[in-house]
Computed example of a mutant assay.
Amino acid sequence: MKISIIPFLILLFMDNTSFSPPISDELGTRHAHNVEFTGDCGFKVDEYDSAVMWNNLRYRLNDDSKNGMLERGEKIGEVVFKVNGNVCLGYRMQNGDATWAEVGTPIYKVKGYSERFRIFLGDELFEVSNIPTAQKIGDFYDFTDKVKKISIEYPIGNSPSIDFSKEETEQFLHAFLEQEYVPFQDIYKNLSENSTHYYLRVHFHDQSVTVISYWIEDNAFTTGYGNDLIKKIITSKAENLAALSSLKP
Rank of each mutant, 00 (worst) to 15 (best):
77 G>V: 13
77 G>E: 13
78 E>M: 07
78 E>A: 13
79 V>I: 15
80 V>W: 03
81 F>C: 04
81 F>S: 01
81 F>Q: 02
81 F>W: 13
82 K>S: 13
82 K>Y: 04
83 V>H: 03
83 V>K: 00
83 V>I: 14
84 N>Y: 05
84 N>Q: 08
84 N>W: 06
84 N>R: 09
84 N>D: 15
85 G>H: 12
86 N>M: 08
86 N>E: 11
86 N>H: 14
87 V>F: 06
87 V>L: 10
88 C>H: 09
89 L>K: 11
89 L>Q: 08
89 L>W: 01
89 L>Y: 07
90 G>F: 05
91 Y>R: 03
91 Y>A: 08
92 R>L: 05
92 R>A: 10
93 M>C: 07
94 Q>D: 10
94 Q>E: 15
94 Q>V: 05
95 N>D: 15
95 N>E: 11
96 G>K: 11
97 D>F: 05
97 D>S: 01
97 D>Q: 02
97 D>N: 13
98 A>W: 02
98 A>P: 06
98 A>Q: 05
99 T>I: 09
101 A>H: 12
101 A>E: 15
103 V>H: 07
103 V>I: 15
104 G>H: 11
104 G>D: 08
104 G>Y: 10
105 T>I: 12
105 T>K: 14
106 P>I: 04
106 P>T: 06
107 I>K: 01
107 I>L: 14
110 V>I: 08
111 K>E: 10
111 K>N: 02
111 K>F: 00
112 G>M: 06
112 G>Q: 08
112 G>N: 08
112 G>Y: 02
113 Y>V: 02
113 Y>N: 03
116 R>F: 00
117 F>K: 01
118 R>Q: 14
118 R>I: 02
119 I>D: 03
119 I>Y: 04
120 F>P: 01
121 L>V: 15
121 L>T: 06
121 L>A: 04
121 L>H: 07
122 G>N: 10
123 D>W: 02
123 D>Q: 11
124 E>C: 00
125 L>Y: 02
127 E>Q: 15
129 S>A: 15
129 S>R: 06
129 S>L: 00
130 N>G: 06
130 N>Q: 14
132 P>K: 13
134 A>D: 03
135 Q>I: 09
136 K>P: 00
136 K>M: 03
138 G>V: 08
138 G>Q: 10
138 G>C: 12
138 G>P: 09
139 D>F: 05
142 D>K: 05
142 D>N: 13
142 D>E: 10
143 F>L: 10
143 F>H: 02
144 T>K: 15
144 T>F: 12
145 D>M: 10
145 D>G: 03
146 K>H: 13
147 V>H: 09
148 K>D: 14
149 K>I: 00
150 I>K: 02
151 S>C: 04
152 I>E: 01
153 E>L: 13
153 E>H: 06
155 P>H: 08
156 I>P: 01
156 I>Q: 08
156 I>M: 14
158 N>Y: 11
159 S>N: 07
160 P>I: 12
160 P>V: 13
160 P>L: 13
